[in-house]
């Protein structure tokens, strides 16, 4: 199946000379949740802005379901809903009016029943007649999502959707996103919350300094780059790793009271059995142990710093 979004050799240089994107090529698969990670100023929002038609590219092409987003902008934009990073809302309009306005802007016939469903799904129905200025930050964020969903898009861009949102609300939004994906909507989200990407995404893309440095299935990425660590809580402390344990990838921490062994969990031989025997021979005893797997955040930090 062809990708729903195909980005080819996209570059963007602002008038100030800042090169925000440099020859970015990326395909987004139909129906997936794609998380775009990157530090501040990496080019995430610029990339989204160009795809959605808010910014002009300096070079390159974006196809949305085969439609060029410049030459055939009507077909391309009709498919996209955008929730921007900032809370841009009409302060004095009611929730109902602003969401209905968004639907009209996208050329869709008025459908009060659908708008009601969207507002109910986002727990906004009770506030449909409230002016937006009277809503809390979390509610405004949901209004932005309702506006983006008002025209029944097949692709939804969520630019930092849960920034400044409390944990409970964030989890509620994840549920909404999952429900949307279940209906076939392709979702592209940028986030600073690595746990969000880890929780939600099918695929992860990492962008840094305007370049895509990695695109991978989340599970494969975790497997490929994820390290597993065995932590041994020692009885007493050791000052240095004994020479007979030099073959093992060991590190001391917590003032010598903890020994950390890093290994590849997918390898045929992890070396754990041998390590434990070697420890016994060296007279190092421990009272507890646990294992941890590196998180997506660890992977992200190591990629961006590389």
């Amino acid at each position: 199946m062809p990708p729903i979004i195909s980005i080819s050799h996209l570059s963007k240089t602002y008038g100030s000379g800042l090169k925000a994107l440099n020859d970015v090529s990326l395909d987004i698969d139909r129906g997936e949740i794609f998380a775009l990670l990157g530090p501040n100023g990496a080019g995430k929002t610029t990339l989204i802005s160009i795809i959605c038609g808010i910014a002009n590219p300096s070079a390159g092409q974006v196809l949305v379901d085969g439609h060029d987003n410049v030459a055939d902008y009507r077909a391309a934009r009709s498919m996209i809903g955008l929730v921007p990073q900032e809370l841009h809302t009409d302060a004095f309009e009611t929730v109902w009016a602003t969401v209905s306005y968004s639907r009209g802007l996208f050329g869709k016939k008025a459908n009060p029943a659908y708008i009601e469903k969207v507002l109910r799904d986002l727990s906004l129905w009770d506030r449909k007649d409230s002016r937006i200025i009277t809503l809390s930050g979390g509610m405004k964020r949901r209004v932005m999502i309702a506006k983006a969903l008002s025209h029944e898009p097949q692709i939804l861009f969520l630019d930092e959707p849960t920034a400044g949102v409390d944990v409970e609300l964030r989890k509620g939004m994840w549920e909404v996103v999952r429900a949307l994906r279940a209906t076939g909507v392709t979702i592209i989200l940028t986030t600073h919350y690595i746990e969000e990407a880890e929780e939600m995404a099918d695929r992860i893309g990492v962008i840094n300094k305007g370049e895509i440095i990695l695109v991978e299935q989340k599970a494969a990425l975790m497997q490929k780059l994820g390290k597993k660590q065995l932590k041994l809580h020692l009885l007493g402390t050791v000052e240095a790793i004994p020479p007979q344990l030099a073959d093992y990838n060991l590190a001391l921490s917590e003032g010598g009271s903890q020994l950390i062994y890093t290994y590849d969990s997918k390898a045929e031989r992890t070396g754990i059995t041998g390590l434990l025997a070697a420890l016994r021979e060296a007279g190092i005893r421990f009272h507890d142990l646990d294992t941890t797997q590196s998180s997506l955040e660890d992977i992200f930090v190591s990629l961006v710093r590389a």
Partner: peptide, 14 residues
């Protein structure tokens, strides 16, 4: 000024 122009620019509107 308010930033809501994003919606007009991203809509299928000539």
């Amino acid at each position: 000024f308010s930033g809501t122009i994003y919606e007009l620019l991203s809509a299928p509107v000539s």
